[in-house]
Design a protein around this nucleic acid. Sequence first.
DNA 1: TCATAAGCGAGACGGTACGTCCCGTCTTTAT
DNA 2: ATAAAGACGGGACGTACCGTCTCGCTTATGA
Lengths: 234, 234, 234, 234
Amino acid sequence: MSPNRTPDSSRRSDRSRRAIYDAALALVGETGYARTTIEGIAARAGVGKQTIYRWWPSKAAVLLEAFLDLQERASEQAAGRPAGGAGEAAEEGVAAEEGVAAGEGDAGAAAYGIPDTGDLTADLKAVLRATVDELNDPVTAAPTRALAAESIVDPVLGAAFVEKLLEPQLGLYVARLRAAQAAGQVRADVDPRVALELLIAPLTHRWLLRTLPLTHAYADAVVDHALRGLSTEA
Amino acid sequence: MSPNRTPDSSRRSDRSRRAIYDAALALVGETGYARTTIEGIAARAGVGKQTIYRWWPSKAAVLLEAFLDLQERASEQAAGRPAGGAGEAAEEGVAAEEGVAAGEGDAGAAAYGIPDTGDLTADLKAVLRATVDELNDPVTAAPTRALAAESIVDPVLGAAFVEKLLEPQLGLYVARLRAAQAAGQVRADVDPRVALELLIAPLTHRWLLRTLPLTHAYADAVVDHALRGLSTEA
Amino acid sequence: MSPNRTPDSSRRSDRSRRAIYDAALALVGETGYARTTIEGIAARAGVGKQTIYRWWPSKAAVLLEAFLDLQERASEQAAGRPAGGAGEAAEEGVAAEEGVAAGEGDAGAAAYGIPDTGDLTADLKAVLRATVDELNDPVTAAPTRALAAESIVDPVLGAAFVEKLLEPQLGLYVARLRAAQAAGQVRADVDPRVALELLIAPLTHRWLLRTLPLTHAYADAVVDHALRGLSTEA
Amino acid sequence: MSPNRTPDSSRRSDRSRRAIYDAALALVGETGYARTTIEGIAARAGVGKQTIYRWWPSKAAVLLEAFLDLQERASEQAAGRPAGGAGEAAEEGVAAEEGVAAGEGDAGAAAYGIPDTGDLTADLKAVLRATVDELNDPVTAAPTRALAAESIVDPVLGAAFVEKLLEPQLGLYVARLRAAQAAGQVRADVDPRVALELLIAPLTHRWLLRTLPLTHAYADAVVDHALRGLSTEA
DNA sequence: TCATAAGCGAGACGGTACGTCCCGTCTTTAT
DNA sequence: ATAAAGACGGGACGTACCGTCTCGCTTATGA
């Protein structure tokens, strides 16, 4: 008698799911997030509206999943490549870094991690510069901004955003900083989690609020200040 | 001939403007930003919709101005109080700090500045703790979040948000840091603008994205790490 | 690709359609046509505005259909009654006449026709007197006036108005006049269509433009003059 | 203390009045009556809205007066011409007839009257044919239709419409028919007012409701049937 | 093996809000 | 005092989407 609240996901149409992802990403890219509608996604995907409402709670959720799916597919594609040496690792790190906020599926780039050449300053600058480039790329930036904005306002979406996109990425920094601590390059009394935010948050701040331009020079300055500290006492 | 509808602001009804501010703030407080509509604001304010559309480009713009007006009025009210000595100044500074993101009109709290007791660490911790409290206050936080989220997505609004709310506040940090540099407490080669972001951005980051709880302890940790630096080199 | 929105009429909600008819007729009756709004009809019918816009091009079109539906239902109800003799037929004819302009659905009163007692003059006077009464009835007259006025200005509506309401009625006159021609009571060289307009148009004229009062005496005079002619030559 | 309900017409700006007439006629001609707004007329006339509201009760009233003014001016212009003989009188009559419904100011064409060549049938046909032409002229017809439609719905406007435009015209028919009665061409027991409506109403009927095309042939047929009558009895 | 029930495309539905257009009133400024 | 100008409270417009709700129509078991 009660309406079946939980649809049988084993019968779900994969064809429709992918079509919805594609349509959602295309529409957000073409017309912007705000002007993208569920109705529009359904029409573009050749799908009934109910099919969207059945599987996702909101437009933002669709987009978030579409985003994650995109990365997953990109990672699967990249997985074919053989892992390189140290020198190449830096390059990989740069590539891996393309998602401080845009994030990367845990199955994907998270595996690559932040390069460890032994020179922490250089490694961090390389990674943060790549992040700057990524954030300045208009193509990826627009939908990411939209997701971030929606996450700020919608706690449920925000939790998913953080868990699926952000945290996997931040974990890489924690790992690298711990390694640096183990190597005696970072004070033992430093909390890696706080340290990471000292590095990442300034970039995010400028990017989200557009207070000032986001440049390589800024990335370098942030690394220098954070590592060295501000006081003369030290 | 041109469709450029530029209304004559000298004939603007002050009564309506204030009624709209009040209605907007009340509705956002009661039902949340997303469920607040222009139609609802107009109805609550006893005003024609067109009167809103005539003077503001968007719901967010109304709310931003309402916010600024609120602070201005609060400041004007506070202006009646006599300025106190050093001890009281610290209290004032804390109060003034209630708007890292919520911001304060330049005519208002900006005049108070960040306390300068000579102990930079203590001063910053006091200010950032107050900021944490402010950001954790559900009343002010909700509309500020909404404005921030909208600013991320709407560059025009974002520019106003930064200029009117954020920058006046950030300027206080720059001033305090410069004073610390002059007193020889902060390295001469530190860019105060970058330094300030090292302090503020981590809080904003946690607040906006809700990655981890925003506590006094975190504020202290950020100050400690930022001032001391992360490396062992020093 | 084409923006031609042609809704699927097989899925149309009959419940809504009838509710809209009822609401439209009620509102026009209570507040007048000019003050009746589509929004008001939708609200009263408990229906979304779009449901009206989906199926009708204008307020007038809604009212016209509501009118036609009303007659159809009235006719269906009347269909239960057995047909009477000659004497009763005259009464029926009078009743049937209640819609020179208000009209009658072809399925309905049109079947009754104009009485044929052999006395053309008497038959026409009876019918036209009934028409006068109908046109002077404030209840029916108001919406009919509105429809007529709208038809004058909107050719599309006008065509529907004429086809659905007016012509079925006028056809009855043609039939009666042809019968009179066959009976040798009307000149063979008379065009029944023209003749009918000689009888009907003067009433409509006075009714629409309110030049002079519309009375039984006037109806009689029109019949007398039309049948006899004006010239002395005859 | 009480608001001045009756403005001082001696202080009225003639410049504005004429500008309003011109604007009203131009807009109705260009965009149609329904899409013509008081606001639009005021803007086009370079006049404040209040100036219209001060002197006219409705959009229709403005248009009606504009119409009357137009005819008055046309008549004044025509008044310069010398009156011609019998042959020319027929032509004049035709010209004068251009307003059975469109009407003519009493100061104007009403002075000309319907030609009286002694041949009533020919005179009426000439006049009604001219009327047909006038009604078929798209330029004059559109605003006249609009006024007629509005008159049907608005009794106050309707009264003005009839009194100022229609009756002066109808009076000419009464005069001509009385002359024919005096000449023994029309039965003495015929009411000229009814007779006139027998002639005019059929044309108006076809014109307003667009039941069938309005042609010279129809005008002739109406005259023939009306004068001769329909019955064989005679 | 086939009814039977799910997901699905489609889209009508009751609604809400949008942003626009005008209404008729009122106020300000200039002539 | 009238006029031009136009802001104002208000109401309706017609549109766009929302999220829900049937409709047939596959499709894929499980009785």
